[in-house]
Amino acid sequence: MDSIMDEKLKEKVELSILFDFYGELLKSHNKHIFEDYILNDLSLSEIAQEQGISRQGVYDIVKRCSKQLRECEEKLCLVKKFERTRKMVSRIKELSLQGKDSQNRVYFDEIIKLCENISRDL
């Protein structure tokens, strides 16, 4: 039971991140429904009642939007690039703190390499 809940939560988190990156590409009506379901945590029934459509209609829109957002990520990889950059920036911070009082050139060589990788990815 817990693993099912964990999977549902993981999916909602994944979809909310994809929505942050690609949500503006959705049709306005679909975007609003998807946002209510994923971000505002409304049920399919609540959204259906609010929108004046069937629960199945809401379900279909959510599934279609989820597919669209995943396809955008497959093609553009913006989330993947963002996560990679975030990790490199975190490593730069860590190296900077470690090397701050050190004369060890290794810290700075790695920082320079990470900065070059970030610049290349942008």
Rank of each mutant, 00 (worst) to 15 (best):
M1F: 11
S3I: 02
I4H: 04
I4Y: 13
I4P: 01
M5T: 12
D6G: 09
E7C: 12
E7I: 05
E7L: 15
K8N: 08
L9A: 04
L9E: 07
L9D: 03
L9V: 08
K10C: 09
K10I: 09
E11D: 11
K12F: 10
K12S: 06
V13D: 02
E14A: 08
L15R: 03
L15K: 08
I17G: 03
L18D: 00
F19N: 01
F19P: 00
D20L: 09
F21L: 08
F21A: 12
F21P: 02
F21E: 00
Y22V: 00
G23A: 00
E24K: 10
L26P: 01
K27T: 00
S28I: 08
H29E: 11
N30V: 00
H32T: 11
H32M: 11
I33Q: 00
F34Y: 08
F34I: 00
F34G: 01
E35Q: 06
E35Y: 11
D36T: 01
D36G: 04
D36P: 01
D36C: 08
Y37K: 06
L39S: 02
N40V: 05
N40A: 10
D41A: 11
D41Y: 12
D41P: 03
S43W: 03
L44F: 15
L44C: 05
I47N: 00
I47Q: 00
A48S: 11
A48V: 01
A48N: 08
E50M: 13
Q51C: 04
Q51A: 15
G52R: 09
I53Q: 02
S54F: 12
G57W: 01
G57Y: 03
D60R: 14
V62Y: 00
V62D: 02
V62A: 04
R64Q: 14
R64D: 04
R64L: 10
S66W: 05
K67M: 13
R70S: 05
R70Y: 04
E71V: 05
E71R: 13
E71G: 07
C72A: 07
C72Y: 08
C72S: 06
E73I: 04
E74Q: 12
E74N: 15
E74A: 06
L76T: 07
L76G: 15
C77H: 15
L78R: 06
L78G: 00
V79Y: 15
K80L: 05
K80H: 09
K81M: 09
T85H: 01
R86I: 07
K87D: 13
K87A: 15
M88L: 13
R91V: 04
R91A: 12
K93C: 14
S96A: 10
S96F: 09
L97Y: 10
G99P: 03
G99R: 10
G99F: 07
K100E: 12
K100M: 13
D101Q: 15
D101S: 07
D101A: 13
S102H: 15
N104K: 09
V106A: 15
Y107W: 13
Y107P: 06
F108C: 02
F108Y: 07
D109Y: 12
E110A: 07
I111C: 08
I111R: 11
I112M: 03
I112P: 04
K113H: 14
L114K: 10
L114T: 01
E116H: 04
I118D: 02
I118P: 03
S119G: 14
S119C: 15
L122D: 13
L122E: 07
L122S: 12
L122N: 12
